[in-house]
Nucleic acid binder design. Structure first.
Lengths: 240, 240
DNA sequence: TCGTCCGGTATGGTCTGACCATACTGTGGT
DNA sequence: ACCACAGTATGGTCAGACCATACCGGACGA
C-alpha cells in the first residue's frame, strides 16, 4: 500500500470540517432526489446515522442551511415537523441587512433615504415602461381590508415590492424586498403612530395611477410624498 | 403545587432558540465594544460560561456568524486562533450579492442600472452637502499612476466608494461597496476593452469638480456620462 | 356513534462531558 | 543563540442524556 492513499489530487490535506461534508451531502441529496419546496429532509438523528457523523455536525449544517434560507426547522411531530425546504432565497440577504442595520447602528434617516432612492427610481421606471400593475392593484385592494397595523404593513410591503418588481430590475427588487423585511418593525410603528391609514392608502392610489398613466415624474413625486407622510419627522416640514 | 420548578426568573416566553440569543449577545458585544476587523471574540467555552449556555449553542451561533461572513474560526492557539472578526458584514453582503448576481442570472444591464441609481444619488447628495472630497482626490491621483487594468480598477473602485461615503449615507455606501466588489470582473473587462483610461479619468475629474462646486445636477450628469463611457453598449447611443 | 382525554412517540433544542488535532508558548538543555 | 519538547488553549467532533413540543391513536364516557 502506498503511503496514506491520498485522494485523486495529491492534496496533502484538505481540512474539511464534518459539517461542511454534511452540507455537501444534503445539497447533493436535494438535487439528486429532486426535492422541491415543502419537501422534508430526514430527521437529524437519521441523517447523522446515515452519514456516519454526530448529530451536532448535522445540526451545524442545518444552521448554515437555515441561515442561507434553504431550510426551515420545525419542532414537534407530523408532516410539518423537521427540516422543510423553503423558498426564501432573499431571507439571507434580509438577515444580513438586518445585521447590518444593527451593527452599523444606522439611523432611520439613512434607511428611509435609501428607500426613497430605490422607490423613486422604481416608480419612475415602472411608469416609463408602462409596466403591468396588477400586482400593485391587488396589494392595494388587500390593504383596504386590513384589520391591524401588522396586516396593513404586510400588504403595504407587498405593494412596494410589487412596485420594485414592476421596475423590471431584479437586483433592485431583491434589495427592496430585503430592506422592507428588515424594517418591518419601523413600518408597523409608523402606521400605529399615524393611527389612520386612509392617507397612506390615498398615496398608494396616487402612485398606482401615476404608473398607469405612464407619468414617471408624477410617480416618483407620489412616492416621495408617501414616505413623507409615513415618516414626517424626517422631512423638513414641507410647505402646506 | 408551584408549577414545575420554574427557572429563577420564571419566564414563560421562550420562543427564541438559545443560539439566537447568543447571536444577539455577540452582536451587541461587537457593537458596544467597538470591535473591528481582526478583533478576537472570547473562546467558545468562555462565551458559553459567560452567557450561561451550552457550548453547542455557542457553536451554532458561530456557524451562523461564519455563514454571514462576520467571523472566521481558526483552531490552535495564539492571537490568530479562535473566532476572528473577518470583515464587517460588508463583504458578506458582497458575497450574497455575488451569489445573487450568479444565481438570479442577472443581466449586466440590471447591475449597471443599479449602480447608476446609487451613484447618481450619491453624487447629488455629496455635491449638495459640499462634502469633503479628499478621499475622492486621493483615489483620482492614484488612478493616474496605475500600471495595469486591475490596478486602475482598484483605484477606480476606491473613487466610487469614496463618492458613496461622501453622500453621508452608510447603508448606501455599504451597498455600493458590495456592488463594486461583486462586479470587479466586469470593471476590469470594461477597462481592457477601452484600452485607454484617459476618458475615464477625465470623467472622474469632472465628477470631482462638480461635487467640489456644489452642483448636484452637474455631478449626477457627470456620473451618468461616466458609466455610459464605461459601458457604451448599454446606453442607447446618445447623440455625439 | 361521536367526542374528549390521555399516554405514546418522533422531532428539534439544549446541555454535559469527553476526546482529538492543531498550533502557539514557555521552558530547559545544548 | 538556538533548538527540542512538553504544556496548554483552541476549535472540531462525538455520544448520550434530558426537555418541550406537537402529532397520533386508542381508551373511555356521553
Amino acid at each position: 500500500m502506498a503511503a496514506k492513499e491520498t485522494p485523486l489530487t495529491d492534496r496533502p490535506a484538505k481540512k474539511t470540517r464534518t459539517f461542511e461534508d454534511v452540507l455537501a451531502q444534503i445539497e447533493r441529496r436535494i438535487v439528486e432526489d429532486g426535492l422541491t419546496v415543502g419537501a422534508r429532509l430526514p430527521a437529524e438523528r437519521q441523517l447523522a446515522e446515515q452519514l456516519g457523523v454526530g448529530r451536532s455536525s448535522v445540526r451545524e449544517a442545518m444552521r448554515v442551511l437555515e441561515t442561507l434560507g434553504v431550510v426551515s426547522s420545525q419542532v414537534g411531530r407530523g408532516p410539518d415537523a423537521g427540516a422543510i425546504l423553503t423558498s426564501r432565497p432573499d431571507t439571507a440577504l434580509t438577515d444580513l441587512l438586518r445585521l447590518h442595520l444593527g451593527l452599523a447602528s444606522l439611523e432611520l434617516r439613512e434607511v428611509i433615504d435609501t428607500r426613497l432612492m430605490i422607490e423613486r427610481w422604481a416608480a419612475d421606471r415602472a411608469a416609463a415602461a408602462r409596466a403591468d400593475t396588477s400586482g400593485l392593484a391587488a396589494a392595494l385592494a388587500a390593504m383596504g381590508t386590513a384589520g391591524s397595523a401588522e396586516e396593513f404593513v404586510e400588504h403595504d410591503t407587498a405593494f412596494h415590492c410589487a412596485l420594485a418588481d414592476a421596475s423590471g430590475n431584479r437586483l433592485i427588487a431583491a434589495i427592496m424586498r430585503s430592506l422592507r423585511d428588515s424594517m418591518r418593525r419601523y413600518a408597523v410603528e409608523a402606521v400605529e403612530r399615524l393611527g389612520d391609514t386612509s392617507l397612506l392608502q390615498a398615496d398608494h392610489r396616487r402612485i398606482l395611477a401615476a404608473v398607469d398613466a405612464g407619468d414617471p415624474g408624477a410617480a416618483s413625486r407620489a412616492v416621495t410624498d408617501h414616505l413623507a407622510h409615513a415618516y414626517p419627522s424626517l422631512f423638513p416640514a414641507a410647505d402646506g
